[in-house]
Amino acid sequence: MGTLGILWNLSSSDTLKDRLARDTLEQLTDLILIPLSGTGSAAVIQQNASEAEIFYNSTGFLRNLSSASQQTRQKMRECHGLVDSMVNYINSSLEVGKSEDKSVENSVCVLRNLSYRLYDEMPPSSLQRLEGQRRNDGATMTSELVGCFSPQSKKARELYVNSDIVTFTEVSKDPKGMEWLWNPQIIGVYNRLLQRCELNKHTTEAASGALQNITAGDRRWAGVLSRVALEQERILNPVLDRVRTADHQQLRSLTGLIRNLSRNARNKDEMSTKVVSHLIEKLPGSLSDKWPPTDVIVNIIAVLNNLVVESPIAARDIVYFDGLRKLFFIKKKRDNADSEKSSRAASSLLTNMWQYSKLHRDYKTKGYRKEDFVGL
Rank of each mutant, 00 (worst) to 15 (best):
A337G: 01
V296G: 03
F329M: 05
S339H: 12
D317W: 08
I330Q: 01
E310T: 06
R344A: 14
K333E: 09
I301F: 14
E340K: 05
L349F: 11
S343F: 10
L327E: 00
S277R: 11
P312Q: 03
D338H: 14
R325L: 11
S342K: 13
S311V: 00
D335G: 07
R316D: 09
D317P: 03
G323F: 05
S348H: 11
I300G: 12
A315P: 12
S343Y: 00
K282F: 11
L327T: 02
P292C: 03
K268A: 07
D335P: 04
A302C: 08
L287F: 05
E281W: 09
I301A: 09
L304E: 04
V309G: 02
I318K: 00
L304I: 00
G323L: 12
L349V: 04
I313H: 01
I313N: 09
N305F: 06
A345S: 13
E281D: 13
V303C: 02
P284H: 10
D335I: 08
G323D: 01
S339A: 03
T351H: 09
N299D: 08
A302R: 10
S342V: 14
E340P: 08
P292I: 08
S272Y: 04
V319T: 03
K333F: 06
G285K: 00
S343T: 06
T273V: 06
S339R: 10
K333V: 04
